[in-house]
Every structure is written in C-alpha cells, then in structure tokens.
Measured scan of single mutants.
Amino acid sequence: IEKFKLLAEKVEEIVAKNARAEIDYSDAPDEFRDPLMDTLMTDPVRLPSGTVMDRSIILRHLLNSPTDPFNRQMLTESMLEPVPELKEQIQAWMREKQSSDH
C-alpha cells in the first residue's frame, strides 16, 4: 500500500509539472495564426496569391488538392516561399510568452 501511495504522489507531481509546462498560445496575434486552421504558425510560407500559411497545413492540403485553398489556382510545394522574418517574430513572441508564464 505504501508503494501505491508513493506512486500516486509521483503521478500527481508529474501531472502538476506538465500542467505548468503547457503554455497557452490562444492569444496569438492574428498575423501569427494560420488563416485556414486558426492555429499558431511555426513555419510560415507565402503562397503566390500573397496569403501566408503554416507550411504543415498547406502541405497537408496539397496532398488532397494541388491548389491554393483560397483561389483554387494551381499550387505546388516548390511555389511556397518561406517567410523567415515572420517566423522569427513568432518565435520571439513564443519565447516572451514562455518567460512570462514561468
């Protein structure tokens, strides 16, 4: 029984630690959010139409349809242009958020 109590305490400790580690990014500025999924972008790319999306989301879309989801023009992965300035701004915002939450 004592071992179970210790195990339960350890589990509670881990759960509390994980809860502290989770950071809420739901208040991200609109320009940091993917327009299709409304999630925080981690690897922004510009489509030929000028729309900026997260790379993982547009690549997932391209698996089903080789088109720009906003104007239905033909689109391939090679046409995606990285946006390193925005990526750095997002990373800086995330770092600031992490340091203010801890």
Rank of each mutant, 00 (worst) to 15 (best):
K97H: 13
E13H: 05
Q91S: 03
P82E: 06
W93G: 01
S99I: 09
N71S: 05
P48H: 01
P48Q: 07
E96R: 04
E13L: 03
M79T: 03
R33E: 00
E88A: 14
E31Q: 10
K5R: 08
D101Q: 12
Q98H: 12
E96V: 11
V83W: 07
D101K: 04
Q91D: 11
G50E: 08
L6G: 12
K5P: 08
E12W: 02
M41K: 00
R20M: 05
L59Q: 09
T42K: 04
K3M: 06
M53A: 14
S78R: 12
M94G: 13
V15F: 04
M79R: 06
L62M: 13
M94R: 14
N64F: 15
I1M: 10
D30H: 06
V45G: 00
E13Q: 08
N71T: 15
Y25V: 01
G50C: 02
I23K: 14
K17L: 10
A16T: 09
A28D: 09
H61Y: 00
P66C: 06
A16E: 11
D101V: 07
L40V: 13
S65Y: 05
R72N: 00
L59V: 07
S100G: 13
A92P: 00
L40M: 09
I90F: 02
A8D: 10
E77I: 06
Q73L: 12
E13K: 08
T39A: 03
A21D: 14
I57L: 04
D43T: 02
M74F: 02
P82K: 00
L6I: 09
L63R: 10
L86Q: 04
R20W: 14
F70I: 01
E88V: 10
M94S: 03
M53F: 01
V83K: 05
V83A: 07
P35L: 05
D54E: 11
E85S: 04
K17V: 15
E85Q: 10
A8I: 04
D24Y: 11
R95Q: 11
S100Y: 06
E85T: 03
D68N: 15
R33S: 04
Y25I: 02
T39V: 02
S100C: 11
N18A: 05
R95A: 14
D101T: 03
